[in-house]
């Protein structure tokens, strides 16, 4: 990706930029804390961190309205925080406690919030893609103008069910935005090693679906593309594909030896393309915020994340009876 851009005059208000800064920072600090708790054995199983990709969900949420839905994979903590779910409830799910969004029964990969229209948290690569189209099918059927953001990875983009879904989504004009989070790797397999397609979004053309690639490290570019896709879907011209070019800084999960890329590659991304640094520069160089303003936000976020961690340790384990509940409605 291109070298760091000089901070141009942002096409966004001070308040907007501060909001994006705050939301992205919350995700990053939350994920760092989750990584720590994992290392301490308080979180178990698989835990996939979203660090590096924050601009994607924050930018797209800025283009959403109440009623819109979202569904994603196991790399889901960022999506939940961005759509307004409570960090305490997310962290307590990670520690497997009753205060978690799934009462501790789902874990990192499986959380849901009906209230925030977040439909999971899915562990089978690619499975969320038809599920997202199904949510859109329901909205169209019910005659509202909601859209569904269906997030999936570059690796998931090779699953057959994605293409079965593309075909039906376009055939039936479903209001679904397919968001491919292309972070360059599916576990240890780079995109180049899994496909000879020159780009992932262009595959939609075979089904007549419009789409584009977007700089997923630039929250403003993400938001602008999101608005365009949302407008098309609300106007009954869906579906739409957005391929977000992004990068994950950490390993695939906590147990990834990461031998498939160099430290230099990661460092280069972090120092030249970091989404949070980008907004920070826009705020500081544009004279929209002072160092102290941002420090105050950092402090607030840290406190919020610490509070979620404390909650996630204090919340009790689910009572044994929970083993037998929620199997049938």
């Amino acid at each position: 990706m291109a070298a760091k851009k000089p901070a141009e005059r942002p096409n966004a208000s001070k308040d907007e930029l501060l909001k994006y800064y705050r939301e992205m920072l919350l995700i990053r600090r939350f994920e760092e804390k989750a990584g720590q708790l994992y290392g301490m054995g308080l979180i178990g199983g698989f835990c996939h961190l979203y660090i590096g990709q924050e601009a994607v969900v924050v930018g797209l949420e800025a283009a959403a309205k109440e009623g819109d839905k979202r569904v994603t994979s196991y790399r889901d903590h960022g999506h939940m925080l961005a759509c307004g779910m409570d960090p305490k409830g997310v962290m307590a799910e990670l520690t497997g406690r009753i205060g978690g969004y799934s009462k501790g029964k789902g874990g990192s990969m499986h959380m849901f919030s009906k209230e925030k229209h977040f439909y999971g948290g899915h562990g089978i690569v690619g499975a969320q893609v038809p599920l997202g189209a199904g949510l859109a099918f329901a909205d169209k059927y019910l005659g509202n103008d909601n859209v569904t953001f269906t997030y999936f990875g570059d690796g998931a983009a090779n699953q057959g069910q994605v293409y079965e879904t593309y075909n039906m989504a376009q055939l039936w004009n479903l209001p679904v935005i397919f968001v491919i989070e292309n972070n360059g790797y599916a576990m240890g397999t780079s995109v180049k090693r899994s496909t000879k397609s020159p780009s992932l979004w262009e595959r939609g053309a075979a089904y007549g679906i419009k789409g584009e690639a977007v700089d997923g490290m630039d929250v403003l570019a993400v938001k602008a593309a999101g608005e365009k896709a949302v407008a098309a879907c609300r106007a009954g011209e869906g579906p739409y594909i957005l391929e977000m070019m992004t990068y994950r800084y950490r390993g695939h999960s906590m147990s990834d030896p990461a031998k498939y890329r160099t430290r230099e590659e990661v460092e280069k991304m972090r120092s030249e393309k970091d989404a949070i640094e980008h907004v920070r520069d826009l705020l500081l160089q544009g004279g929209l915020a002072s160092d102290d303003d941002l420090k105050a936000i950092d402090k607030e976020i840290k406190a919020q994340v610490n509070e979620s961690a404390e909650f996630s340790k204090d919340s009790p384990e689910p009572p044994v009876e929970e083993l037998w509940t929620d199997i049938y409605a």
Binding site: G44, G104, K105, G106, E317, P318, V320, E322, L323, W324
Partner: peptide, 16 residues
Amino acid sequence: GKDVPMPYAANLEKFA
């Protein structure tokens, strides 16, 4: 194993 989907919580998984 118990007649339930596998729970995540450490204590429940032990029971399952």
